[in-house]
Amino acid sequence: MSDSNLVWFGSVLSIGSIIFVLSLLGKRTGSQVSQSALQTTQSSIPSTDSDQVRSLQQQCVQLRQELQQQQTQLLTDWQNSTFEQLQSLLISYPTARKMAETKPDLPAKNLIALFTPLENLLEAWQIEPIGAPWEAVPYDPQLHQPDTDDLAAGEPVYVRFVGYRQGNRILCPAKVSRTLPGQV
């Protein structure tokens, strides 16, 4: 059974168990039914129904435990996969940083190749950049974060820092300005 089917099955089973128990208890006032009322009601239920309730409750507990284990496993798998995709960047970054600190005249283009794993990760996650650095574009308040409040939609601006989107969802808008750095 797939993970999504198991989640749906667990949800349906939980809801079914709750509905079944509530139907047995009848209408009660208050927000919670006390444990003694539940036990009293269960003792008045024929043993087969009571056994079914206990069985469903045990299955519900078991499914919740399995879902918790799957959630933990999925998080671990995701972290491992992400680390594998970024591993070469993470290994090279500290050395590149040290080189940049000790050799300030080192051309930045020597470091560009380090970011390929990051670009690959964004591509795998189907995350696309919004704009390109220093690109001239018409201002779009849905896609851009201006550095001043007086920009009008369609006004020409420059992308200072790219933003990111995943499909139609804007993860972070591109930061835009009327001028490029160093211009007045």
Rank of each mutant, 00 (worst) to 15 (best):
P104C: 07
A37P: 01
N110D: 14
L86T: 00
K175E: 07
L151D: 08
Q57L: 14
Q35A: 13
V53Y: 07
S11V: 12
G167E: 13
S2P: 05
L143H: 01
P156D: 01
G131T: 01
I112Y: 06
V7K: 03
L122P: 03
S47T: 15
L106K: 08
R160G: 10
D49L: 14
P104N: 04
Q68I: 15
Q69F: 09
Q65E: 14
A96L: 10
V12P: 04
T29F: 05
F9H: 10
V159W: 02
L106V: 08
Y139M: 01
V162D: 00
T72A: 12
V184T: 13
R64E: 09
D149G: 09
M1W: 03
D105W: 05
A37H: 07
R169N: 11
I91A: 02
S50F: 07
T40E: 15
D51G: 15
K109S: 10
L63P: 01
V7Q: 03
L74V: 05
R165H: 03
T179A: 12
L180G: 02
K175D: 01
Q126Y: 06
R178F: 00
I170G: 01
P94E: 04
R178N: 05
G163C: 03
K103C: 08
H144I: 11
D147S: 05
Q73A: 11
V176D: 00
V159H: 00
C60H: 12
L74N: 13
V176F: 00
W8I: 09
Q68M: 11
S31M: 15
S92C: 04
Q85Y: 06
W125N: 14
S43P: 04
I170D: 01
P117A: 03
I170F: 03
Q85G: 03
G131A: 00
V12A: 09
R64P: 03
Q59E: 14
A152V: 08
Q62L: 10
T179I: 13
A174G: 02
G16Q: 09
D140Y: 05
L89F: 15
S36C: 00
I19Y: 08
L118F: 07
Q142N: 14
N5Q: 08
T72P: 02
N5L: 11
L90C: 07
